[in-house]
């Protein structure tokens, strides 16, 4: 199934999600509100997206963007599910009840970005030591131990 067919399929099944769906750089992107993220994910799961391949976040300065890569084995297609998390209150709902695959990946996002996931059973740091201060993949993270890159390219 290609992206266009996916869009038609999605619009047929869930007309409310249809306007949120766009095609960027050859990939389907469903940009939702973080309040409705869980419901959207649930809908997509029932639509046939059975794998949560990747889960990460990007720090865009004023907000974080949660990026979920969903893949459907039956449709042989992948797409992104995205939602913007405000920087002041970095909280969103955990997808662990839908996909246990989110268990560790959400821990990693918490570890690196400090985004908290409601409903996650075991939200701790995973890669960094428990006493680490700060969230390294945030763009405003500062650490004296970081080696400064030389000025030239």
């Amino acid at each position: 199934m290609n992206i266009q067919e996916l869009r038609d399929h999605l619009c047929g099944q869930h007309p409310d999600l249809c306007p949120l769906f766009s095609i960027e750089f050859g990939d389907g992107v469903l940009q939702v509100d973080c309040e409705t993220l869980y419901e959207a994910a649930e809908n997509l799961q029932s639509l046939g997206f059975d794998r949560l391949g990747m889960l990460t976040a990007v720090d865009f300065g004023d907000h974080f963007e949660m990026v979920y890569r969903l893949t459907s084995r039956s449709m042989s297609v992948g797409m992104f599910l995205k939602c913007a998390v405000p920087r002041e209150t970095p909280r969103t709902r955990s997808l662990v009840p839908l996909w246990p695959a989110a268990l560790w990946q959400e821990r990693e996002v918490y570890d690196m970005f400090g985004i908290e996931f409601d409903g996650h059973p075991d939200l701790r740091r995973i890669l960094l030591p428990p006493d680490w201060v700060g969230f390294p993949l945030r763009k405003d993270y500062r650490d004296d131990r970081l080696i400064r890159r030389p000025d030239y390219i």
Partner: peptide, 12 residues
């Protein structure tokens, strides 16, 4: 260490 197919998919 038996892993069911459903778990394999759900756990990614």
């Amino acid at each position: 260490g038996v892993l069911s197919a459903a778990d394999a998919v759900g756990w990614g």
